[in-house]
Design a protein around this nucleic acid. Structure first.
Lengths: 204, 204
DNA sequence: TATTTTAGCGTACACTTGTACGCTGAGATT
DNA sequence: AATCTCAGCGTACAAGTGTACGCTAAAATA
């Protein structure tokens, strides 16, 4: 019961996903990908694509899931680093920047399809980002004892800013990138401080 | 010297631009547009397109400029409203939401091409948004006497959040949209308050 | 061992795309 | 009035697209 067959199928399925991610770049978004080119890079005939996915859309949604998974692993990693004594803000930012450097195409997918042309994609990405926000909100709530609604809004604002800065970071290197990170950290402090203030005020 | 000729040319040029904007929608982004379809809607032969633009790219950049212009007019309008006694935050948010309702496709263009597949587009959009940020930063600097670097970072964070909320607003209506606006306003208050605090602290 | 299942292939087809090329006729210029 | 300019057209083509259909061989099942 080795399942030689199923194993091989999984392998080319992964090859398709890998090929698709690989064809994403600064100049190539998901909607630019063609079934035929993806199949070609994965080493199968165009028509064999359908043995794995009904559609390019189905492939894409799978890719969003994969990127979401990476994002969650990232969060866990950041939490570990913070727990072992890192500054919250700079550790989080650093971790996120590593994500962008290591998996730029996963990030690009989330970034672009968040406001892309398919509602299914937009919802899928929104769902992944919401996980991210909720995690952060939960953390903030525990840490600062503010009410949960304020914690959520604070987390949402932070994630928004981190994401957008990530997008800009994709086009930058070296000095100007460090400046970006610096700005981002200040902006997070603004939100943190302001959020703390209003949450306190409101809880009275 | 009526310039009948030039006048007519301008007219079909505008028809092309209008057709292109019209074909943008939630399900259709600029890179999905085809030269032929745009020409068809504008009522000219595909090959006549080249009498006006070298490229679809050139058309697109023109469209970004136009959207940027709208954005600047918007700012002026918001300033007038504030000057005549409106709350800064709620007036700004309201004005921006009007933009999204009135010119959703101009907004979509800026939103998507900001992280799109053409560097030229990304830079063009970034330039327009930078105007927006600088205007706001200037206003904040004058209003709160904080140092200009902090004012800039504050403005940048605000614009980022407003833009992203705008993107979400495109998919929402009624109740949930009002909730979004409510959240957005809180988030802006966070930044405003936090920004004020750090700017003060730093200027000593 | 005989039978069924299925991942992958090749061919074929109907479309759509961008754009090269040369023509025309109505304004502009002289 | 004679000439020039040029916005718009029609034809044509090569390239690329998604996918329907039927085949094959190897793995799975009986």
């Amino acid at each position: 019961m080795a399942g030689v067959r199923a194993q091989q199928k999984m392998k080319t399925r992964q090859a398709l996903i890998a090929a698709a991610f690989n064809q994403l770049s600064a100049e190539h978004s998901f909607s630019n990908l063609s079934l035929r080119e993806v199949a070609r890079e994965a080493g199968i005939a165009p028509t064999s694509f359908y043995r794995h996915f009904k559609d390019m859309n189905e492939l894409g949604l799978t890719m969003v899931d994969e990127a979401g998974l990476t994002l969650r692993q990232l969060m866990r990693q950041a939490r570990r680093r913070i727990a072992s004594g890192g500054s919250v803000i700079s550790t989080s930012v650093l971790t996120f920047m590593e994500f962008i450097d290591n998996q730029p195409n996963q990030f690009r997918l989330l970034l672009r399809e968040r406001s892309g042309t398919s509602k299914a994609f937009r919802s899928a990405v929104a769902r992944e980002i919401k996980h991210f926000i909720l995690e952060l909100a939960h953390y903030l709530e525990g840490e600062t004892q503010c009410d949960s609604h304020h914690a959520y809004m604070q987390a949402e604002a932070m994630v928004t800013i981190v994401f957008t800065s990530g997008a800009e970071a994709l086009d930058l290197e070296g000095q100007s990138r460090e400046e970006l990170v610096e700005r981002l950290q200040w902006q997070l402090r603004y939100i943190s401080f302001g959020g703390y203030h209003y949450a306190q005020k409101n809880s009275k």
